[in-house]
């Protein structure tokens, strides 16, 4: 057990060289490689984390967008429903109005037709009645219709109340007798006499033709009016014809 100091110094040098060699060829390269690997792993982890964050962020953004789309869709749907309801109600209203309009138009036409028919009927029946009466008077009593009309009118003048007579008597204007037919001078004389007797002797009497007075005669003085004509009798006929039409008219007619 002896120590060779020269060998000891050589071994010290050898050991120091070995330390340097291993540091150069073993520790540094291995540690560097491990550090690089760790760095790579860290980078990948960072990248993965950032991608995950990005993915989460994108997911959230897509979810938000999706929610926005759904809301928008719901809103649109609701809006469309609302519009459809409004349109439906508008169309229903229009249809109702149209129906009512058509109905009222139709009713008006019916009424007009009815009125025209009744007027026509009245006019025709007037002619017929006039002819029949004229003929009947001629055949039965050998009298003229005009005479009977004038006679009836004079009889009507007899029934006038005092106030009317007084009003006519005080009139400054002349009295006017309108007839649908031409009066002969004898008839005019009779009428003038009757008027002078019954109303006032000073009253001037003029005679005019008025074809609109159907088979009738009319006295106008001041604001008083006395008349007789056949249409009064025909009013009864018109009323009964209108009554006959009533069941045909639609119930509850609005216009």
């Amino acid at each position: 057990m002896e120590i060779n100091w020269i060998t000891v110094s050589a071994q010290v040098v050898n050991f120091l060289i070995l330390v340097w060699l291993l540091k150069r060829f073993l520790y540094q390269p291995v540690i560097r490689a491990m550090d690089r690997r760790e760095q790579k792993i860290q980078n990948r982890m960072d990248e993965a984390n950032s991608r995950e964050q990005e993915a989460i962020h994108e997911k959230q953004s897509y979810q938000q967008k999706l929610a926005g789309f759904e809301k928008e869709r719901d809103d649109l749907l609701e809006e469309t429903r609302q519009e459809a309801r409004q349109t439906r109600s508008q169309m229903l209203d229009q249809a109702r109005e149209e129906t009512a309009r058509v109905r009222s138009h139709w009713m008006r036409e019916i009424r007009e037709e009815k009125t025209a028919f009744i007027d026509g009927l009245r006019h025709q029946s007037l002619d017929v009645v006039e002819t029949v009466i004229r003929k009947a008077l001629q055949d039965l009593a050998d009298e003229h219709l005009e005479d009977r009309i004038a006679h009836t009118f004079v009889r009507q003048l007899h029934t006038l109340d005092d106030a009317t007579r007084e009003a006519m008597r005080r009139s400054s204007e002349p009295a006017t007798v309108a007839t649908s037919f031409e009066l002969d001078p004898a008839q005019r004389g009779t009428l003038t006499r009757s008027i002078h007797e019954l109303i006032g002797a000073d009253l001037t009497v003029n005679y005019t033709r008025a074809p609109e007075l159907i088979c009738g005669i009319e006295l106008t003085c001041e604001s008083q009016r006395i008349s007789w004509n056949l249409s009064d009798y025909l009013d009864e006929l018109s009323a009964s014809i209108e009554r006959a039409f009533e069941p045909l008219e639609p119930t509850g007619a609005g216009g």
């Binding site: 060998t7 010290v12 050991f15 120091l16």
Partner: peptide, 11 residues
Amino acid sequence: SLSTTTALAIC
């Protein structure tokens, strides 16, 4: 060798 171990111990 004691020389080697001595060298290491000195280090």
